[in-house]
Structures are given as structure tokens and as C-alpha cells.
């Protein structure tokens, strides 16, 4: 199978892994992917993918305003808040 770039995948996943985790996951994920290798051998030409197990379509709601949460409820689980907003560390 292809090389598994643990650092890159961890970055995309936003996971700050320890060195041990990187080694362990690298090994285990390779094992799992090797096992999954079998699916590549299946001939699926002309087969369309199944994204949904049930054939529904055009499910829509009417454009009606429903009640929102109060600001207090919206922020009730916030780790840090200020002036009705969620606080995050600097972005850049």
C-alpha cells in the first residue's frame, strides 16, 4: 500500500500526537489498510456508489422562522465567553 504520512494526516485531523502515538497509529493504520486492500481488487466498473442506504430525494423544509436559542443558552457550554460571543485564541 501507499506510504502513510502520519504527520500530515494528524495535521489534517488537528491532532497533536505524541511520538509514541505516531508510531503506534502508523503501525496499526497500516495493518488496517492492508486488510482493506482487498476492496481494491473488487471489480466495480459500472457500479455507482451508495451514499445513502435509502432512496429519498428532495427533502426540504418551508422557509419559516422558528424560535432560536437565547444568547444565554447558546453560550451555556462555552469554555470561554465575552460580550455574548465565544472567545478563541488568536487565529493567525
Amino acid at each position: 500500500m501507499e506510504t502513510f504520512d502520519v504527520d500530515h494526516v494528524a495535521w489534517l485531523s488537528r491532532l497533536e500526537l505524541t511520538q509514541e502515538e505516531k508510531e503506534l497509529f502508523g503501525k496499526q493504520l497500516k495493518q488496517i489498510l492492508d486488510h482493506a486492500e482487498v476492496i481494491k481488487s473488487v471489480d466495480t466498473s459500472g457500479i455507482s456508489p451508495t451514499y445513502h442506504p435509502i432512496p429519498l430525494k428532495n427533502v426540504m423544509r418551508e422557509d419559516v422562522i422558528l424560535s432560536s436559542l437565547s444568547q444565554e443558552e447558546a453560550l451555556s457550554n462555552a469554555p470561554q465567553r465575552e460580550g455574548g460571543a465565544f472567545v478563541v485564541p488568536r487565529i493567525m
Binding site: 447558546a74 465575552e82 460580550g83 455574548g84 460571543a85 465565544f86 472567545v87 478563541v88 485564541p89 488568536r90 487565529i91 493567525m92
Partner: peptide, 11 residues
């Protein structure tokens, strides 16, 4: 955004 101490999120 550059040089800010922190940011506030309004959804």
C-alpha cells in the same frame, strides 16, 4: 486578524 490578542465568534 494579524496581531490580534484573541477573537470573538458570533454565529
Amino acid at each position: 486578524i494579524h496581531g490580534a490578542d484573541y477573537s470573538l465568534e458570533d454565529f
